[in-house]
Design a protein around this nucleic acid. Structure first.
Lengths: 138, 138
DNA sequence: AACCTACTTTATAATGATTCTAAAGTAGTG
DNA sequence: CACTACTTTAGAATCATTATAAAGTAGGTT
């Protein structure tokens, strides 16, 4: 549960002015009880229905991208034609249901610690992601 | 090191007739000492330079897709605008160098076993992929 | 409150990967 | 050799994402 002040801070610290449109985007993303997994078109659909503003795709892309760079959103690695984002930016892993294209958070204790025994000289590790693809039984 | 007979078998078992173009694609993919990571445009470039045939993009997409479905190629989960494939179809994980867009195979013993402690009722697990993103130090 | 300037929004165009289409070509069987 | 189903191909279509440039707005300054 976040309020408008928090959104303004999030935006300013991402180098963005708090505009009407961006505040609406913040509400859609962060004014939630659970973490939120989405694609840009999911978010656009939600904004269209929940908000009175018309917010252009360009603005949505622009804002999501700034939040991702500022680490207020996490992009999940999936070989999909679309990008998936997660409002939960802590280190954690995912199920991806290929039958429904839905992401599900895993708790770290559900995966166990990843013990990487190999290093590559001259490279630094940016992230470690585990993706478990599942399908509906049928 | 595989020969033409093997390629013909691969193609037939994928439901594809062995044509000149598809044999050329097989050579580019499997006539190698090391496993090969590629995007469609990588493969198209290689075919253009190594082979005398002109092979259309549509044929390359078609063949790669059939091999993927038949499990002769593995698609790697990366949030990129392009699809990445791997001729190594065994269970294994990857580094992805974000500075160069290159994939590097990890041996399973380099990652340790992934012990999944959570199941989802009514779903079956199709794959478990670990992706470690790295960047060049500079 | 009016003013100014840099940042924003927006519709639209551009790009790039992938898929589709339909006409011309080829493999494989009889 | 003939026939049919499968292929190849160039080009069009699609879809997500990025770029463009004109009109709008935030926020500081008078």
């Amino acid at each position: 549960m976040e309020n408008k002040d928090t959104f303004v801070k999030k935006l300013r610290s991402s180098g963005l002015r708090p505009t009407r449109q961006r505040i609406e985007i913040c509400k859609a993303l962060y004014d939630r009880k659970k973490t939120f997994h989405f694609t840009i078109s999911d978010l656009a659909k939600i904004l269209k229905s929940k908000s009175n503003e018309k917010i252009s795709l360009a603005t949505i892309y622009n804002t999501v991208s700034a939040f991702k760079n500022r680490n207020y959103l996490k992009e999940i690695s999936i070989n999909s034609n679309k990008s998936y984002f997660d409002t939960n930016v802590s280190n954690h892993h995912h199920f991806f249901n290929e039958s429904t294209d839905e992401l599900i958070d895993l708790k770290n204790e559900d995966v166990g610690n990843i013990k990487l025994k190999k290093k590559i000289p001259g490279k630094k590790i940016k992230s470690v992601e585990v993706l478990i693809k599942i399908q509906n039984n049928n």
